[in-house]
C-alpha cells in the first residue's frame, strides 16, 4: 500500500524546516563580530538566512519535482489538467508570505531598536530639530554661516553610551581619506583607535563629495554627506584591527579610500592616547596618510 501523500508532504516539510534551521545556525557567512551591534545583526541574519533557506529550497524543490514528474513523455501530445485556479489555495499562499514578512518586519524593527536606531525618534529634542529644519534653505545657511547648534543627522545610536563616558572623535571624510581628530588629546590621526567596551561617538563631516564610513566587523555603515554633520555611535567589543572602508563611490581612488580601526584593550588605548598627545603629532601624521 502506498504511503498517503499527506504524510509524505508532512515529512518533507519537516525535513525542509530542519535543514533550514541547521543552515541558519551552522553556516557562517559573516566576518568577526567586533561591536555590540554585531551580535544583534548576526541574530537577525541567522533568522533571515533560515527563513530564506527554507523558502528557497522549498520552491526550487517543488519546481524541480514538477519538471521531472510532469515532463512531457515522447509522443504525448495531450494537455494537462484544466485547473484555472483555487481561491482557497491562493488565499493561503497570500497569507503565508504576508505573515512571514510581517514577522520579519517586526523582528527587524526590534533589532534596529536594540541597535539604537530609533533613539532620535524617542528624543524630543531631536524631533524638534528635525521639524525645524524642514525649512531647508534657512537652516542650511544657518549651518554654514553661524555656529547655532547645527542639526545632526543621526546614524545608528548605541544603547548605554552615556554611562561609560563617550569617546568623541571628529571624523573628516575627504577625497580619498578619513581623518580622525581626537578632541581629548587635540591631535589628528589617519587611523581610528578606540577602546574595547567604551562607546565611541563619531562626529562626521564630508568635505567634498559623499563618502560612507563602513566597518564590516562592526556591521555599521553611515553615509557622510557634505552639508550634513552626522553622528554615529557604537561600542567596539573585540580587540583587533579591522578595515574602515569607504562604501560610496567618491571618485577615481574610491577603492583605495581605506583605513584601519584599531580596537585596543583599555590600558593599551590609554597609553596610545598618551603617546599621541600633540608633541608627537608630527610623527603620526605621515603614517596616517599612507
Amino acid at each position: 500500500m502506498p504511503i498517503p501523500s499527506a504524510i509524505v508532504t508532512l515529512v518533507l516539510g519537516m525535513i525542509l524546516v530542519l535543514s533550514g534551521l541547521w543552515v541558519g545556525q551552522n553556516v557562517n557567512l559573516l566576518p568577526a563580530a567586533a561591536s555590540t551591534n554585531a551580535p544583534l545583526y548576526d541574530e537577525l541574519f541567522a533568522v533571515l538566512f533560515t527563513i530564506g533557506t527554507i523558502l528557497f529550497l522549498g520552491i526550487v524543490g517543488l519546481l524541480i519535482f514538477s519538471l521531472v514528474r510532469f515532463r512531457r513523455r515522447d509522443g504525448d501530445l495531450g494537455d494537462g489538467v484544466a485547473v484555472e485556479g483555487n481561491l482557497q489555495l491562493e488565499i493561503f499562499w497570500t497569507a503565508i508570505p504576508a505573515i512571514v514578512v510581517l514577522f520579519v518586519g517586526i523582528y527587524s524593527y526590534d533589532i534596529y531598536d536594540r541597535m539604537g536606531g530609533m533613539i532620535p525618534l524617542a528624543d524630543p529634542h531631536a524631533m524638534h530639530g528635525s521639524m525645524g529644519s524642514a525649512v531647508m534653505p534657512a537652516s542650511v545657511e544657518e549651518l554654514v554661516t553661524q555656529d547655532v547648534e547645527p542639526r545632526l543627522w543621526g546614524g545608528i545610536g548605541s544603547p548605554g553610551g552615556t554611562e561609560a563616558g563617550l569617546l568623541p572623535v571628529e571624523v573628516t571624510a575627504l577625497q580619498f581619506a578619513f581623518l580622525f581628530h581626537y578632541p581629548e588629546g587635540d591631535f589628528t590621526s589617519g587611523e581610528l583607535h578606540v577602546k574595547a567596551g567604551q562607546t565611541v561617538e563619531l562626529r562626521m563631516e564630508a568635505r567634498d563629495v559623499i563618502h560612507a564610513f563602513w566597518v564590516p566587523q562592526f556591521r555599521l555603515k553611515q553615509d557622510v554627506i557634505p552639508g550634513q554633520p552626522t553622528v554615529l555611535t557604537f561600542t567596539p567589543t573585540l580587540p583587533g584591527q579591522y578595515p574602515i572602508i569607504c562604501a560610496e563611490l567618491c571618485g577615481p581612488y574610491h577603492g583605495g579610500m581605506r583605513s584601519t580601526v584599531v580596537v585596543h584593550e583599555p590600558e593599551a588605548f590609554d597609553s596610545w592616547l598618551a603617546s599621541n598627545r600633540p608633541a608627537t603629532l608630527a610623527l603620526t601624521a605621515p603614517l596616517a596618510t599612507g
Binding site: L40, Y41, L44, F45, L48, V104, G105, S108, I111, Y112, M115, G117, I156, A212, W214, P216, R219, L220, K221, Q222, A247, E248
Partner: peptide, 12 residues
Amino acid sequence: AQVPFDIHVHDT
C-alpha cells in the same frame, strides 16, 4: 529591505 540588515551590506 530590513534596515539593520541593509546598514551592513548597503553599497557592497
